[in-house]
Amino acid sequence: MANDTATATPDIAIAATSARDENLEALTRGIWRENPVFVMLLGNCPTLAVTNSVINSLAMGLATTFVLVMSCMIVAMIRDFVPKEVRIACYILVIATFVTIVDYLLQAISFDVHRALGAFISLIVVNCIILGRAEAFASKNSVLKSSLDALGFGIGFTLACLFMGVVREVIGAGSFAGIPLFGPDFAGWSIMILPGGAFFVLGSWLLLFNWLAARRKRRPA
């Protein structure tokens, strides 16, 4: 995972024009082309576990994005004076801090959503997207670029969660964000809300994404 992220070496001075391109690249990469869930298959635990409704997916995505951006920003800030030998411990400390903060914030903002997400908020701390970005990118790049990169991957993760959540809630419960779509007679496919359905939905999305990627490759550029 670390070797394909095209990490630019920070020592090389970059011309001003290409720096803007690189920033844009850092931001957009995680949203689509290297989407953490659909392309890199990272962070599947929350993607499978809590995406049974649109609201839960959105809350999970936003909470993870918050932790991701704040952690990568801090990691980039301290990257020059953290000794190599203890860097992972320091990163985990930073990540755990923001996970704890987001846990309190969510309880304060919406008690119901917090009840629905339960232990999975605390489990953001072991979401490999976050440690992955901190180690592979933020520890080697400037604060601005690391934040943009983290934001891009956060948006990518949130979008992926939403993709899962929308399909699961619409088919499983016949509603979108709690609003019934098909009237009272609709028979929800309960399996979509159950954990098993998450695998079906993730598999279908992967099928679609790989099919699109294969078609793009086949077409002469």
Binding site: I78, F81, V82, P83, V86, A89, C90, L93, V94, A96, T97, T100, I101, Y104, L105, Q107, A108
Partner: peptide, 20 residues
């Protein structure tokens, strides 16, 4: 280094806890 980072983390967490 770890002590300083831990200290800052502690301050942030306690701050968040108290304010929420």
């Amino acid at each position: 280094t770890m002590g300083v980072i831990g200290l800052i983390s502690a301050v942030l967490i306690v701050g968040a806890y108290r304010s929420t």
